[in-house]
Amino acid sequence: MKLWLPIILLFLFAAGCITSDVPAGVPGQYELPGLDNTTIYYLNGSTVKVVDSVVNQTTIRFMLDDTSETNFKDPAAVNLSGKNVSFNVTTEPIFGRSYIRFDFKSEFSGFVAFTQADGQDFVRMTVENKSVRVVLPANYTTGSKFLGVANPEPDNVTTDALGREVLIWKNPFPLQISVKYYNTSAPMLFSYFIIFVIVCAAAISGYYYFAIRSLRKKREVIEKNFKKDRTADKRR
């Protein structure tokens, strides 16, 4: 009994408790089908839509971030023909991490999709033997050392049919991908801000320069008059 107790406790800690089903979303809200052997992240500033390829699987797990299962909604799945596929989605903790688990009745090949909350500092872990694409919102970009960059540097950067910038990593595992992105007008606004700061600094410097120069002249006049008065007093 003493031998089995640690094993049972370890199993419970590792597996955790499976929570209730997550309501399914609508495939039409995603850009499906996706690309083979590729995970695609569609960013829009406040959420990220994930589209991932699946080959001959009955169960798939996705690790969530520290916001746990509350940061997951609208799961969907379609086969390689683009037809909707039924599935069951549950959440489960494994070794302190929250996972989303897709379960299919039989081996499934196609694409799964879901939505998560996110900001303009996008960070994700990668998996082995799979490429990654990050699609930025329209009129957004990355690459400025002052405003934000993608790390590691993408293998390729292109633009899709909707004019969105697409960052591509062919096989980034085991690296973690992070992307800080910003509006395309931000560099110009940043330049205007720098010019404004320089002009203000020049104006303040000029003001102090002329103010100090004026004070020096007044001091010279006062000292000159003081010397004249002392000379006149000595003559008396």
Rank of each mutant, 00 (worst) to 15 (best):
Y209D: 01
S205C: 13
I40P: 03
F122H: 08
S81P: 00
D229C: 04
E92A: 09
T58R: 13
Q176A: 05
A202M: 15
V197E: 03
L10G: 15
T142E: 05
V197R: 07
R101D: 08
V221T: 10
K228C: 03
V157K: 15
C200N: 09
E220M: 09
P23S: 05
F146H: 06
F173H: 14
D233W: 02
G119F: 05
I195A: 11
A24T: 07
F11Y: 14
F104P: 09
P137E: 05
Y42C: 11
K105G: 05
T142Q: 05
E92D: 01
C17V: 15
I94L: 11
I40A: 08
L9M: 14
T19P: 02
K224I: 01
I204L: 15
Q29R: 11
T159V: 15
P154V: 12
R124C: 11
Y192V: 05
G82N: 03
L136G: 10
Y182M: 04
L32T: 00
Y209A: 11
A15T: 10
A202I: 15
P93M: 12
R133S: 13
I18S: 15
F11R: 03
P93K: 13
F190R: 06
Y207S: 13
T39G: 01
Q29W: 04
F226I: 00
T142R: 04
R164Y: 03
Y207H: 14
G148E: 02
L162W: 04
S178L: 04
P75V: 09
T184P: 03
D233A: 14
P187M: 11
K49F: 07
A186W: 02
K2P: 01
T59L: 12
E223T: 14
Y41K: 02
P152E: 08
F104W: 02
V199G: 05
Y99C: 04
K105L: 10
G148M: 03
Y140G: 00
F122T: 08
G148C: 06
V112H: 08
G119M: 04
L5G: 00
V127H: 03
K234P: 00
F72A: 11
S205F: 15
K227C: 02
K224V: 00
Q120M: 12
D65P: 00
L80T: 15
S53V: 02
L80P: 01
N37K: 14
R124W: 00
T38Q: 07
M188F: 09
Y192E: 00
K180R: 12
L35G: 01
W4Y: 10
P27E: 07
K224E: 13
M63Y: 00
S86Y: 03
K227M: 10
E31Q: 09
